[in-house]
Amino acid sequence: MLSEFLVITVGAILVNNFVLSKFLGICPFLGVSKKLDTALGMSGAVVFVMTLASLVASLVNRFLLVPMKLEFLQTLVFIVVIAALVQLVEIILQKVSAKLYESLGIFLPLITTNCAVLGCVVLNAKSAPGSVQSTWYGATIYGFCSAVGFALALVLFSSLREKLDLARVPKAFEGTAISLITAGILAMAFLGFSGLV
């Protein structure tokens, strides 16, 4: 049991990193990685939402969609559930913890349409029946670890980009071009983890 969780953890964070080997969530990966502190804010929000979304979506899938033989509606229902969940969390957070609400700020509603969140939920739903990932706790752990992997990639990349700002980049490669090249090299570095699990 424990070894299975370890496999999920290491697999989701390093080997099958959401951004660098599954190429999910590229938009925020490039969009909010200009500064380290915004990257940290985004990472916090993603970890928060992805963990919750994995839990709720796996429950919806297990107790609603599968018994009613509506698996083909997974994508549609998951999007609705995630959007509603983010909305709910935002409303409650604003009232309960204004500090946390302010630090997550604009990133919370942005995540509603983050493909990494939907991707994680869909991967959970499509995992082999009987595996740890198909249970609600396994799904939650997988969601949390994937989000941590996303956060790791985002923080690494934003630190690199802060350094890049001071480097003298050839004119033709300035801006997005050098960012994409850097992201590619970072992904290649993560390829080194393949075969670990």
């Binding site: 919806v60 609603l64 509506l70 509606l73 229902v77 609705v80």
Partner: peptide
């Protein structure tokens, strides 16, 4: 499908 999605 229609009814359940609408209900959700």
């Amino acid at each position: 499908a229609i009814v359940s999605t609408g209900a959700i």
